[in-house]
Amino acid sequence: MDSSVSSQRPKSRPKSSQAIFAKIFHWINLISLSLMISSGLQIYNSNPVFGGRAGWQFPSIFLLGGWLAGGRHWHFAAMWLFAINLLFYGTYIFITRRWKHRFLSSSDISAIQKSQNIKRKTYAWHKLAYTAIIPILLLPLLSGLGMYKPAQLHWIVDFFGSWQALRVVHFIFVPTVIIFAVIHSLLSLKVGGSRLIKSIFL
C-alpha cells in the first residue's frame, strides 16, 4: 500500500474513557435518584407540603409506591443506596486523589473571571458545577434525616428554622437536581462532546 495514501487518511480521534468506578457511581446515582424522586412525589401527593391534601397533585405516571407508606418504603430504600454510593465514591476519589482534577481551584475561579480562552473557561465552569453537586447531594440527606428522626436529630430541624422549612428545603431538591443534571450535561457536551457523555454510562 502506498505510504502517501495511508498518511493522508484521517487519524481516528481517541475515545473518551471513564474509570469503572465512575461509571458505576453514575449508574447507581441515576437509579437511586429516579427512585427517590418518584417515591418522594408519591409522599408529596399523600401529604403535600404546599396547600395540604387539597393541594396540587402530581400525575400518577410519575409516582412510585402506590400510597403514603409504599412511597416511604421505596424512598428510604433508595436513600440508603444513594448514601452508600456517595460514601464509596467519595472515598474512591479521595484515595485516588481524583478530586484535584475534578473540583474547583483558585486558578479555575480566575479563569472564569478573566480568561479569554473559551475552552478553558468552559472547563472551569464544568469544575464549578462538579463542586456544587456536593452540597446539592448532601442537603437532601441532611434534611431527610431531620424529617425521619426529628426528636433524635432536633438540631437539624433547628438548623433549618422549623419543620415546615425543613420539608420545603427537602422538596426543592427535586427541581434543583434536575436543573443541575441539565447544566452538567450541557457543560460535559462542551468539554468532551457526545463521546464524553457516552463514556460515562457505556
Rank of each mutant, 00 (worst) to 15 (best):
S12T: 12
R13I: 14
P14K: 15
K15I: 11
S16L: 10
S17K: 09
A19M: 08
I20A: 13
F21T: 11
A22D: 06
L33F: 04
L33D: 03
M36Y: 01
L41S: 01
L41T: 01
I43S: 00
N45H: 07
V49R: 04
G51Q: 10
G51S: 11
A54D: 13
F58S: 05
L63R: 02
L64M: 14
G65S: 12
G65M: 03
G65Q: 05
G66M: 07
G66R: 04
W67R: 07
R72W: 09
H73C: 08
F76M: 15
A78R: 02
W80R: 11
L81N: 02
L81Y: 00
L86A: 12
F88M: 13
Y92Q: 08
Y92W: 15
R98Y: 06
H101L: 12
I109Y: 02
S110N: 14
S115F: 01
K119S: 11
K119G: 02
K119A: 13
R120F: 00
K121V: 09
H126V: 04
K127Y: 02
K127L: 08
K127T: 00
A129I: 12
A129L: 13
Y130D: 08
I134S: 01
L138C: 04
L141C: 12
S143N: 10
L145N: 02
K149Y: 05
P150C: 07
P150L: 11
A151M: 14
Q152F: 04
Q152H: 05
L153F: 07
H154K: 10
F159T: 15
Q164S: 15
V169M: 08
I172F: 12
F173Y: 14
P175S: 06
V177R: 03
V177K: 00
I178V: 15
I179D: 05
F180D: 01
A181W: 09
A181Q: 05
V182I: 15
I183V: 15
H184F: 05
L187S: 07
L187R: 01
K190T: 11
K190C: 07
V191P: 00
V191T: 06
G192F: 05
S194R: 14
I197P: 01
I197Y: 06
I200G: 09
